[in-house]
Nucleic acid binder design. Structure first.
Lengths: 200, 200
DNA sequence: GTTGACTTTGACCAACCAGTCAACTATAGT
DNA sequence: ACTATAGTTGACTGGTTGGTCAAAGTCAAC
């Protein structure tokens, strides 16, 4: 029925990249359209508002994270549980370092950036990001539970620890972004990983 | 010479509060002026630009942090070094919980919020925040060095550990903000503190 | 009491913002 | 080939943005 196009996806991809390298408020609908090679009228044909676009962007990135991105890459069961968490950190360091090379600056976490900027203003977006962080924490917790079962980790409050590990991840990314130095992130990550092993 | 007023300080205070509870881009000069009970012309008499105001806001908050705020409160030498770090975390949890009560939402860290939003767009502000984080890490590192000297902590890379601890702090604040739950922050903080003691 | 530095005011600007809309076009299913 | 449906276009809106300015007002120092 009717014609079809990939304009919607182009808009999502463009917005994702622009939001990531700058911020939500500093990127206008106009600019997103230009990058996506789409007229503003088309934008509002696909999305009722900038907020709805943002929701779609978040969904899309989260899907990528799980299918082929950092989560998929790190948490494969081909290595022991704690090694997966280590891989999660190291992979993220790699990702930020890569972006620093390409764009000349550390861009931070897609989710963390949006969370910091918007979650105090838009409850719908906040909840979506809340869910994603919860899901991410669940993945980590399951890994910790496995580590306890295998005997690589003493019995701890895995839920709190998983949340703390995720927080640490967000923290080192934010610090790397502010210092504009991805190498520092690696050092902090290693210090954190050491601590996890230490408490094992 | 000429008349004097506290308008400049009123502007700084208003901006600090508005930026904290929303965001840099979402708060206009207009709104800041209204809150400060000042006309826009006066604003631009005191500050050449919104950015310069922001720089002044950051300076002012950082001064507060060190004179009577969280840094001053936590790092007094009346308790052993590791206890000071514990107090730093617990105090920050308290602060976020207080704000959640007052404003109905977890507002996050003054510096962390600005860092996440602006450091990828404005190099001057980024550098200022970079310096503040460095200074904060230095305070923590000195405390860790002291802990090692006293024998409360085994010999580690104190610089990396200090940065990691600061990152963890920023991370748990960001998570608390996104989940809009200051209690969760307390749980994560305790999990983190446990780990620090564990590695001691 | 006059001077001169400092503060206040309100009107003003161009640029940009998110969002609207009616007309137009291309196409997939019939 | 027809038609319903989906995609495209560009002109438009009302409101807001950061920032400017000339003029008026106020006070401390001399």
């Amino acid at each position: 029925m009717g014609r079809n196009s990939d304009a919607k996806q182009r808009i999502i991809d463009s917005a994702a990249e622009l939001f990531h390298s700058r911020s939500y408020a500093n990127v206008g609908v106009q600019e997103i359209c230009e990058k996506a090679n789409v007229k503003k009228g088309s934008f509002y044909h696909f999305f009722p508002s900038k907020r709805d676009l943002t929701l779609a962007v978040i969904d899309h990135i989260w899907l990528y994270y799980n299918r082929e991105g950092p989560v998929a890459k790190a948490f494969g069961k081909d290595v022991p549980p704690l090694k997966r968490i280590e891989r999660f950190f190291l992979g993220s360091c790699e990702f930020q370092a890569q972006l620093q090379k390409e764009k000349g600056k550390v861009c931070g976490c897609h989710f963390g950036n949006l969370a910091s900027e918007i979650s105090s203003q838009d409850e719908v977006i906040r909840k979506k990001l809340d869910e994603i962080f919860s899901a991410q924490a669940d993945v980590i917790e399951n890994t910790l539970v496995e580590a306890v079962a295998v005997g690589d980790l003493r019995e701890i409050d895995t839920k709190a620890a998983a949340n703390a590990i995720l927080a640490f991840m967000q923290g080192i990314i934010l610090m790397a972004k502010t210092r504009n130095d991805a190498r520092l992130m690696r050092k902090m990550a290693k210090a954190g990983i050491d601590m996890i092993y230490q408490s094992g």
